[in-house]
């Protein structure tokens, strides 16, 4: 137990420290790198809680793909940091106001939180023993049976978002010569090469 407690404090401590660094570091790229560190430590906490699948998926999806693209964009931003910090005091009251409003709202929501009475019925249903069923099997059993409708809806929403992004960014210019790979591969010497006799001094 000592070791697991030690690791818990290590992961959560680093997660909190690096998430503080996300908002306090001056360089946006450093911020994103600290955000990635936070993700990795959150994944560590997931794994410690026995949800290895979720933990690894967090790394594969968020750290391995989403954060890479995020970093990609932030790296290409051309930001003048000195200029950015000039308006710091000017925006401080507004920032503080928004922050306090959010905090109060969150507290109000959490304070009036009541666990729905129906939840007890769902949780008291026999959940397979963790020692017997593997994580991924348990998730699959629930996701593809009870929650298949929500799962499919989530998939369709993502698909629509993807198609929307493609439609918004894709511009077919009519006068651009594009490479046709099939045509190129299908070429053979007979159709591609022809001999031409050139009379001297005339050219083609």
């Amino acid at each position: 137990m000592i070791a697991s407690a030690l690791f818990f404090y290590l992961f959560s401590g680093v997660a909190i420290a690096s998430s503080l660094m996300v908002i306090s570091s001056r360089n946006p790229v450093h911020s994103v790198l600290f955000l990635i560190l936070t993700f990795v430590n959150a994944a560590g906490l997931f794994i410690m809680a026995g949800a290895e699948f979720l933990g690894l998926l967090l790394i594969v999806v968020y750290v391995g793909a989403v954060a890479v693209l995020f970093l990609f964009v932030v790296m290409m931003l051309d930001v003048d940091f000195a200029e950015l910090r000039q308006g710091y005091l000017q925006y401080l009251p507004i920032g503080l106001f928004v922050g306090i409003v959010l905090l109060v709202e969150l507290l109000a929501v959490v304070g009036s939180w009541v666990v729905a009475p129906a939840v007890e019925n769902t949780t008291s249903q026999p959940i397979p023993d963790v020692a017997e069923t593997r994580n991924i099997e348990a998730l699959g059993n629930i996701l593809y049976t009870d929650y298949i409708f929500f799962f499919q809806i989530a998939g369709i929403i993502l698909l629509v978002a993807m198609i929307g992004a493609i439609v918004l960014t894709l511009h077919h210019k009519p006068n651009v010569r594009r490479q046709n790979i099939n045509e190129q591969v299908a070429r053979d010497p007979k159709t591609a090469i022809r001999n031409v006799k050139i009379r001297s001094g005339e050219g083609l």
């Binding site: 690894l56 790394i59 594969v60 750290v63 391995g64 793909a65 890479v68």
Partner: peptide, 17 residues
């Protein structure tokens, strides 16, 4: 690990960093 292949996949997706 039970999720050995996923672990390898996760690590190799981090290598880009």
């Amino acid at each position: 690990l039970n999720l050995g292949i996923l672990f390898v996949f996760a690590i190799s997706s981090l290598e880009v960093y």
